Amino acid sequence: MNARLITIAKCGFWWMFWIWTGLITLVAGVGLWMQYQHLVFNDSTCEPVGLYQLRSSPYPLHNGELVEVEIPGPAHHAAVAEGLKYHWFPPGQPWIKEIAAVPGQTVTLARSGVRVEGHTLPNSRVDRWTPGHHHRIVHYSFGTYHLKHGQVWLYAPGNYAFDSSYYGPVPESHILQRAVPWWTIPGSQFWLRKGD
C-alpha cells in the first residue's frame, strides 16, 4: 500500500512539474512575442483595456494621437503623489494617453470638463471622489492655460481617467512613443461606473 502511494505521489509530482514547466514556457513565449511585436498591455480603464502597439517616435505631435507617456514626477504633482500613495497605479509604469493639446493651443479646465480651443472633450468632467467616495481627488487648478513651447495636455476618455485635468500639462520629453490599439475591449474604459 505504501509503495503504491509513493508511486502515485511520484506520478503526481511529475505531472505538476510538466504542467508548471509548460505554463512558464508559455508565459515566457508570449512575453517574448509581445516584446518582438512592440506590444504593451494596458489594464487601466483610462483608455480601452487591451494591447497597444508602440511605434517609434511620436514627433511631430498632433491632437488626438495616442502615445505612451512617462509618469510625471510626484515631487511636482500633488495628484501623482496621491495616486502613488493610494496605489491607484504602479510606480514607473508608462501610461497610454491621448494628446489633447500641443504648444500654442489654449485649454480651459473647469469642474464640468476640459475645453481645447473652444471644443469640449467628451467625458472630461473633473471628479471630486474616487469610486465609492473613499478618497477626495486632487485636481489641477481650474482656469485657462495657453500651452508653452514643450508642453502638452494629456486626455483619457474613460470614467475616472487620470489625465492632465489632475496633474496639468506635461513636458513633451515625457512622451515616449506613439501607441496604436492592436486588440482592445470596446467600451472597457467605462467599466468603472461614475458616482454622484
Rank of each mutant, 00 (worst) to 15 (best):
W18M: 01
T25K: 09
R4Q: 08
A100S: 14
Y166L: 12
A156L: 06
T21R: 08
W153V: 01
W191E: 13
T7D: 11
Q105R: 08
H135A: 03
W33E: 15
V180M: 12
A28Y: 13
N42L: 11
G12D: 02
A179F: 14
V69T: 07
R55L: 08
P131L: 14
G29M: 04
I19Q: 01
W95F: 11
V102Q: 13
V114S: 09
G73E: 13
S44F: 00
R193K: 15
L5R: 15
Q189C: 09
I96S: 00
I71D: 08
L54E: 04
Y140V: 05
S173E: 06
N42S: 12
L32W: 04
W14L: 00
A75Q: 12
L176F: 01
W191T: 11
H139D: 12
L192R: 15
V138P: 06
H174V: 12
Q37L: 14
G12C: 13
E172W: 06
S173G: 01
D127V: 12
W129H: 03
R128W: 05
P181L: 07
V67F: 09
I8R: 15
Y166T: 06
F13K: 03
E65L: 06
G92W: 03
R4F: 13
A101I: 07
W153R: 02
P186E: 03
R128L: 14
A3F: 10
G187W: 04
H77K: 13
T21H: 07
Y160G: 01
Q37Y: 07
K97W: 09
N159E: 05
Y155K: 04
L32K: 06
D127L: 11
H62P: 08
H133Q: 10
A78M: 04
V126G: 07
V107F: 04
N2Q: 15
N159D: 03
M16K: 10
G143H: 04
Q93K: 11
E47Y: 00
R4Y: 10
K97R: 08
G83A: 11
N123F: 01
P171Y: 09
P157F: 09
I19V: 09
T144D: 02
A179E: 05
V138H: 10
R128V: 13
E82G: 08
P74T: 02
P58S: 13
E65C: 14
I185G: 01
A9F: 07
Q189K: 14
T25F: 14
L154V: 02
A3I: 07
S173H: 12
G158A: 02
H119N: 00
W88G: 03
A75F: 06
I24D: 00
S112F: 14
G22F: 15
E98W: 00
Y52C: 15
Y160M: 02
V69K: 11
G113T: 10
K194L: 06
V152L: 08
I175E: 03
G104W: 15
S165M: 07
A110E: 13
W153C: 01
K85P: 02
H76E: 13
L154Y: 04
S188M: 10
L26E: 03
I19P: 00
